[in-house]
Design a binder for these strands. Structure first.
Lengths: 199, 199
DNA sequence: GCATTAAGACGATACGTCTCGCCTTACCCG
DNA sequence: CGGGTAAGGCGAGACGTATCGTCTTAATGC
């Protein structure tokens, strides 16, 4: 089934790979995703086009790998658990807001989210590699809170996390509002209001 | 400041305009947004390319107008108010789920959401013309419920609506889950749990 | 030595502009 | 009013540029 005579990865140039990532990330910030071209990346990276086509199927795939490579350095540690659920969620979401407000982060992430909307396979990879890990730490934190009795027993934790993260993402992606600390706090408080056990 | 000698709208061909809309909508469903081209639209519509370039700045703008023209026929009536808030929200969100699960609806809406992520001006128009009107009816319904004492007084209704609609949109856009009636019901119940007044 | 590499030629599309007559429309004048 | 005319939109498609994805070549480096 080995389609298309897979190239020999052991002989791959790490130098070129990194140069391609750097070029892709800087170019997407400068010219935007629509005007990002494989030829442009190859040229800035000092790399032959074939080197890109050999290893990636699309510019979106290049960008996804480039972005992931940059993000993987942050190893996800799980959310803090100080015992104060609201405070923990707020502090992490505030940090995430700072990240999403950072121009360097914005261009590639927006581009990937957009490309994913029209490309089912890409969206699955995007979700699995970038969104899901970030979501899971919230799920775990909420589950811990649930076991501690801070969150009502019957609640679907997964949906609760969506209620927290989706408004945040949506606001940012569609530019329907600013991601301020105030907003984050309001959101956390309102979500938690619905999660607390009733007496 | 009239840039570029604006064309005379009074002499515009309604026939061509409609043909362009039809062609754009059917083509985006057939070949997808990435492979949708102005030339393709012009060709299928039996229209000169210049006729498209004269009236729209981009294929995204064409699609937005085409889609909006189709949707505008649904005049938004506001949400039902039977007195049972949960039931009202569930019935409308279920209908929306059906709509979002409809293939005819999916391709253009996905394409526009994606294009908006990378194009700030387009996203503002997209939000203002398609999302905001739909959001407002929820805001109004919740405000009515708030006045009726069904929703606690201090709550930011706008954020509450985001908690309801964003998880729904996000799930659909990123394909992180199915939009089932069960899901809709769970979401409505969990959101409302946080909105109810405490004794 | 052999597969990957940088460089770029290549044909195929699609871009956005332009030019060409044709045709419709707005509006003027009788 | 209502016919005539000029302006401008119209369909068609040629044009030069840009990028696509493939292919060829010679150099490189493991």
């Amino acid at each position: 089934m080995a389609n298309k005579a897979a190239p020999d990865a052991s002989r791959r140039s790490e130098r070129s790979r990194r140069a391609i990532f750097d070029a892709a990330l800087s170019l997407v910030g400068e010219v935007g995703y629509d005007k990002l071209t494989i030829e442009g990346i190859a040229s800035r990276a000092g790399v032959g086009k074939q080197t890109i086509y050999r290893w990636w199927p699309s510019k979106a795939a290049v960008l996804l790998d480039a972005f992931t490579a940059g993000v993987d350095e942050y190893s996800t540690q799980g959310l803090p658990d100080t015992g104060d659920l609201a405070a923990d969620l707020k502090s992490v979401l505030r940090a995430t807001a700072d990240e999403f407000n950072d121009p360097v982060f914005q261009a590639p992430y927006r581009a990937l989210a957009a490309a994913g909307a029209n490309d089912e396979e890409l969206s699955r990879t995007f979700v699995a590699r970038l969104m899901e890990p970030g979501t899971l730490v919230y799920v775990e934190r909420l589950r811990a809170a649930q076991e501690a009795g801070e969150v009502a027993a019957g609640i679907d934790v997964r949906v609760a996390v969506e209620m927290l993260l989706s408004p945040f993402s949506q606001r940012w992606l569609m530019r329907t509002g600013e991601l301020t600390y105030d907003y984050v706090d309001t959101l956390v408080d309102l979500v938690l209001r619905g999660l607390r056990p009733r007496d």
